[in-house]
Design a protein around this nucleic acid. Structure first.
Ligand SMILES: [Mn+2]
Ligand SMILES: [Mn+2]
Ligand SMILES: [Zn+2]
Ligand SMILES: [Zn+2]
Lengths: 154, 154
DNA sequence: CTCTTAATGATAAAGATTATCATTATCTAA
DNA sequence: TTAGATAATGATAATCTTTATCATTAAGAG
């Protein structure tokens, strides 16, 4: 059944992510904790583009003993080790999205309802690199956000 | 002499900007004040990509009576009427740059020295609009930031 | 000039992230 | 397996930036 395959895949992704996280921690002389496993699991199971507060509230249901600061600190660590991306829009609370195997994408952001649409255009990606090179600039990463009105709101 | 032409041009730009600002204020039933003229002048004379705090400190020299809140409020107004653009990078303080006649550009941002290089690629601009349209999304504005190492730092 | 009310400026409050620190728990190495 | 060094946690305080408050000032229409 399709639903089982999806669940299996999700579990595989999380196991792989746990490995990446544990290796990253080990490499930095940091420790693996119960809290860290819970936070990573919750983060990968949760909705995309989540705030620390939302993640904290989701975790609180089953793990009321885990503190906000701990969630905050560890989302930071997930970013460091490449398992999460930070999204800052205006003065709003920072959002985070799980990242798996370096899949990069950009965002269309609706000015009315706030919806995020994930997009990618290889041609744009290549032109960005060219543009950087033309300016003697070594690109590392980029952020492209297009603001406007989504399908429902336009 | 070239220096005089540059100064003349700068003064013309500021006069035009003052007109735009005054018209915007009038249209909204707001008032023109001495402080607003000082802030606009200082903003257009100052370095690009300035923070409110930096602008406030620059103004303080000649106008120590003008308050921080007033500078902050009015930089906001300058953004509203299209004479300034907001630049938010990570958790750093918001920076603002004067905008004259809707000239849009994107930024290359050095991860080492923080330098901003202004760039524009018409091909990328067009592809962005196409990408939006392909997703039934009506683009209003966008933000493209390429992070990496600049000429000096690479 | 008068009067309405927007703007100012000092300060407080809010909102988000980061630091502090006593306590707990991990994990290395004996 | 256990002891010991020290990283992590969690409650809370501190910080840092932006926004709100409010008594006072002043713009500008009439
Ligand atoms: Mn996304
Ligand atoms: Mn610029
Ligand atoms: Zn929408
Ligand atoms: Zn540089």
């Amino acid at each position: 059944m399709i639903i089982n395959i999806i669940i299996k895949t999700a579990i595989m992704v999380i196991n792989k992510a746990q490995d990446i996280f544990r290796n990253y921690l080990r490499g930095k002389g940091l420790r693996n904790t119960r809290q860290r496993e819970v936070i990573l699991d919750a983060f990968f199971f949760a909705d995309k583009h989540i705030t620390v507060e939302e993640l904290f509230n989701a975790i609180k249901v089953k793990h009321p003993e885990i503190g906000f600061a701990t969630v905050h600190r560890n989302v930071g660590l997930l970013c460091e080790c490449g398992l999460a991306d930070e999204i800052k829009i205006g003065n709003k609370k920072t959002r985070y999205e799980p990242k798996y195997e370096q899949r990069h994408h950009d965002h269309l952001i609706c000015l009315k309802c706030g919806e995020f649409t994930e997009v990618k255009d290889e041609k744009i990606e290549r032109l960005q690199d060219k543009l950087a090179e033309a300016n003697n600039f070594a690109p590392v990463r980029h952020k492209l956000e297009i603001y406007g009105l989504c399908k429902k709101c336009r």
